[in-house]
Amino acid sequence: MGFKLLSKLLVYLTASIMAIASPLAFSVDSSGEYPTVSEIPVGEVRLYQIADGVWSHIATQSFDGAVYPSNGLIVRDGDELLLIDTAWGAKNTAALLAEIEKQIGLPVTRAVSTHFHDDRVGGVDVLRAAGVATYASPSTRRLAEVEGNEIPTHSLEGLSSSGDAVRFGPVELFYPGAAHSTDNLIVYVPSASVLYGGCAIYELSRTSAGNVADADLAEWPTSIERIQQHYPEAQFVIPGHGLPGGLDLLKHTTNVVKAHTNRSVVE
């Protein structure tokens, strides 16, 4: 069995187990497998329904001669939608809004960016022009300005110390501490036991640490421990890039980060 097929099978099995364990909360999309990078042309966006009122959005972007996937989250909030992270750029984010209108038909009224990198804030200006209120932590807003990236308009308070959590509509926002970046936030959907790890969490097929220019490698494993301790009931975990899975993604990420750190020390 090929690795790609095995990865998709694991996603399907995880979703099936969740649907059985929580039949009222989960209505997993039966329309197909989780979209992969090879299936999404740059400039297009796919939506994948995880649970009743919960979707991931998947886009792709060219970077350094390669094409990478990027995940975000959409959560229903009454007759409105909360968006977590842009679709990595203005063109993708405009396509995301169009796809949401086509498939869901509810307005996106608020959006949260989970850290300051372009795959999370690139497209904020498109959201703002569409009347979406954009939010991020003060740290993310400051770092985005320093980096020359787009800056969300509103500040999220109460997320300055490791372990801080605040309720934001249908989700809980959690600051686990520094990891992929010093400002990275985690998003949890309690009604569906869905954990969105953003770039602080890796997919299972990833074996290298990737972009760690703004990471705190020493603190990252401790931050992941905080996530595990705060959300032990999480059933569906979405990484910032690639295929979702279960809580095993947290341990896998820790292993990859520690291996990278150990290699760096040896070198």
Score class of each variant (00 low, 15 high):
31 S>V: 09
208 S>N: 14
60 T>W: 07
153 T>I: 11
248 D>I: 07
29 D>I: 11
86 T>Y: 04
254 T>V: 12
240 G>Q: 03
3 F>G: 11
197 G>M: 02
93 T>K: 00
32 G>F: 15
265 V>P: 13
264 S>Y: 08
231 Y>I: 02
125 D>W: 06
57 H>W: 02
39 E>H: 10
222 T>N: 13
95 A>L: 11
144 A>H: 04
27 S>A: 15
73 L>F: 04
115 H>I: 00
122 G>S: 09
84 I>Q: 00
200 A>I: 07
122 G>H: 13
199 C>F: 02
245 G>D: 05
68 Y>S: 12
240 G>H: 07
166 V>R: 10
153 T>A: 12
70 S>D: 02
132 V>A: 06
15 A>Y: 11
12 Y>C: 10
254 T>A: 14
3 F>L: 08
92 N>P: 03
207 T>F: 09
214 D>N: 10
88 W>E: 00
60 T>A: 12
67 V>W: 14
229 Q>R: 13
31 S>A: 12
155 S>N: 14
253 T>M: 02
264 S>V: 12
120 R>C: 05
47 L>S: 02
204 L>A: 12
181 S>V: 03
62 S>W: 09
231 Y>L: 03
46 R>K: 09
235 Q>T: 13
126 V>P: 00
43 G>D: 09
132 V>Q: 00
267 E>V: 05
108 V>Y: 00
248 D>L: 07
143 L>N: 07
216 D>M: 07
249 L>M: 08
230 H>I: 09
55 W>R: 03
144 A>T: 08
216 D>Q: 09
153 T>G: 10
46 R>L: 08
46 R>V: 09
230 H>D: 07
191 S>Q: 13
59 A>G: 11
10 L>W: 08
90 A>W: 07
136 A>N: 02
75 V>S: 03
158 G>S: 08
255 N>I: 11
21 A>N: 15
133 A>T: 13
208 S>F: 10
111 A>S: 14
226 R>P: 05
175 Y>A: 01
56 S>W: 15
104 I>P: 00
78 G>V: 09
14 T>L: 10
51 A>W: 07
43 G>T: 03
70 S>N: 06
119 D>C: 01
35 P>T: 07
213 A>Q: 11
190 P>E: 12
146 V>F: 14
117 H>T: 00
145 E>I: 09
29 D>H: 10
180 H>D: 01
129 A>Y: 15
16 S>M: 05
86 T>F: 00
161 S>L: 12
75 V>F: 03
32 G>L: 10
94 A>N: 13
233 E>I: 09
259 A>Y: 08
133 A>W: 08
7 S>C: 12
50 I>A: 05
181 S>R: 01
146 V>M: 14
60 T>V: 15
79 D>H: 09
60 T>H: 09
138 P>R: 09
164 D>R: 08
166 V>E: 07
139 S>D: 13
177 G>M: 03
199 C>R: 03
127 L>R: 01
49 Q>W: 11
49 Q>L: 10
150 E>L: 04
228 Q>D: 06
72 G>K: 03
